[in-house]
Simulated assay, not measured.
Amino acid sequence: MDKENYTEVKEFFLIGLSHYPALQISLYVLCLVMYLVILLGNSILISISILDPRLHTPMYFFLANLSFLDICYTSSSIPPMLVNFMSERKSISFTGCALQMVISLGLGCTECVLLAVMAFDRYVAICNPLQYTIIMNKGLCIQMASWTWMLGFLYSLLLTLLAMMRPFCDNIIDHLACEILALLKLICGDISLNVFIMTVGNFVFLVIPLLLIFFSYVFILSTILRINSSEGRKKAFSTCSAHLTVVILFYGSALFMYMKPQSKETKTSDELIGLSYGIVTPMLNPIIYSLRNKEVKQGVGKILTRRLYLRKI
């Protein structure tokens, strides 16, 4: 493609769902309510994990990481999205788009690896309970959590730089946010390197963690079925069912978005699935994974009782 067809981009226009103004108003209200629920639910989980000594375990350490990740992920995308819903211009600066893409893509990749780490934690807890505290020591937990964050952001930084350094033929993104697949459609010329790195990234951050989760639960299930006590089996299943529900929700939408064949046109269904991936899952995580847990409920009650007592004093 000739250079005169290139466009010097200083800002992008996000036109996702712009043809449905009535739907945008409904989505604005829905996304705002869900964002507030995300902030409240995940903040409560983080606070309890810190304040309740009984929850100072690897499981709740990783859950607190997941909750913090979900707050950061949604805060990077939902507030700008809400502004765009009510704005006629619906624009975002070149730097703002790059920053949003680095954060959202990095946190999404981090969550993929973190869910696999949490599956490993459950595997050790159920299959090697006597060695659990030795294997899942504080140092190892901090190292695993740190590596999940670093790997996710290094990959997202590489992918974003490769995309933003390329010449663009247009600056109109047919999406609700600066999403990598929608942005690649605007690049002039060959994007085979971008596609290759994204394909490798899909394998590293989607396929490998999903396989690790699968094999972890194969061993977990075989161990649970060997437990003689029905109460013991029930308790073991309850500690894993929430994690599996979160994995299905998260990976189901992520695999649909990034592993299916891409078309030139962005479908409305793709954008709504993107919303599910970016908003619904973070909102349900604390409910599904933690608030159903008896220890968390007791922690909430304990903290609320303590605060009410201090107010009376």
Results as ranks from 00 to 15, higher is better:
V124R: 02
L249W: 02
L107E: 01
L304R: 05
I208Y: 06
S276P: 09
Y123G: 04
E88C: 00
T268W: 05
L221C: 07
Y217C: 01
G152T: 03
F85S: 03
M283A: 15
F203G: 05
F237D: 05
T266F: 00
N5C: 03
L107N: 00
S241F: 14
I126W: 03
I279D: 03
M198D: 12
L114K: 01
F94K: 12
M259I: 11
Y132T: 07
Y258K: 02
S77T: 14
V207N: 02
L157F: 15
I288R: 01
F62C: 03
L23A: 14
Y289Q: 11
G299H: 00
K260Q: 14
G108Q: 01
D121G: 07
N84V: 00
I126V: 15
W147M: 15
I172Y: 03
H175G: 08
N285S: 13
D2R: 13
L154E: 07
I103K: 04
I15T: 15
Y73V: 11
T57Y: 05
S26F: 12
V204Q: 06
L193I: 13
P21G: 07
F237Y: 15
N42V: 01
G299E: 01
T160E: 09
S269P: 00
W149C: 10
I25Y: 12
M101P: 08
E271S: 13
F13W: 08
K3C: 09
L158Y: 12
C169F: 05
I224R: 01
L162Y: 13
I135V: 13
R166H: 05
A163M: 14
Q131E: 10
F168T: 09
L51K: 14
F214E: 03
D190V: 01
L39K: 03
S77F: 12
D70C: 14
K90I: 00
L244N: 10
V195L: 14
I227C: 08
F196L: 13
L225K: 11
K294T: 06
R166W: 00
L14N: 07
C109W: 09
H56V: 07
L244A: 10
L45S: 03
Y217H: 08
Q143N: 11
I44A: 05
Y60C: 00
K312H: 07
S253I: 03
C112G: 15
M1C: 02
F12H: 05
T74P: 08
F205V: 12
T245E: 14
P286G: 01
T74S: 15
L272I: 14
P286F: 02
S263M: 13
S49E: 00
G232N: 07
L30K: 08
G106H: 11
G232L: 09
V83P: 03
S146N: 11
F237V: 12
S276T: 15
Y20P: 01
V117I: 13
G152V: 07
S222C: 06
T281E: 10
